[in-house]
């Protein structure tokens, strides 16, 4: 277990800059330890989409990345408001993002589909009023 590296970042509602810096930091650290560019790209994009969802749709929380010998896990946990219908939220094109978010280039309802596309495993658990937990895995 001594091989495991864990990175943790706070995610703050409305703070796009911090979210971008966190995934850029993960990218840099993965490059430093010699992970392949393809795995880095997948991990960084999946993490960023998850963070952006927390920035836009949640009350904030944290992102935790763990690097194991054969896989990278990305855990995103927020403090609410939760998602009423996870299946619907995960379908391509579904969005509740307001216009001002769409003007920034987000809110195409493709965040969850992207996270699914770029990871080997994804589990979304959500409890309305409590929060959302997204667990993703990228094989190395």
């Amino acid at each position: 277990m001594s091989d495991v590296v864990t990175l943790r970042y706070d995610v703050i509602p409305g703070d796009f800059i911090k979210a971008g810096e966190a995934s850029s930091d993960v990218k840099k650290k993965l490059m430093d330890i010699g992970i392949s560019p393809d795995v880095i790209r997948k991990t960084a994009i999946a993490m960023y989409e998850g963070e952006i969802n927390m920035v836009i749709h949640s009350l904030g929380g944290y992102a935790e990345i763990s690097i194991y010998p054969n896989e990278i896990t990305i855990l995103l946990v927020d403090n609410g408001p939760g998602i009423d219908n996870v299946e619907q939220a995960m379908s391509a094109g579904f969005t509740t993002a307001p216009d001002d978010i769409r003007e920034l280039g987000f809110g195409a309802g493709m965040g969850f589909p992207n996270m699914k596309k770029y990871t080997d495993e994804m589990i979304v658990e959500s409890q309305p009023g409590i929060g959302t937990r997204v667990m993703m895995k990228v094989n190395i």
Partner: peptide, 13 residues
């Protein structure tokens, strides 16, 4: 041309 574009450029390589 916002900060999110810059992040996406970095992450997508």
């Amino acid at each position: 041309a916002n900060v999110n574009t810059l992040a996406v450029a970095t992450l997508t390589d």
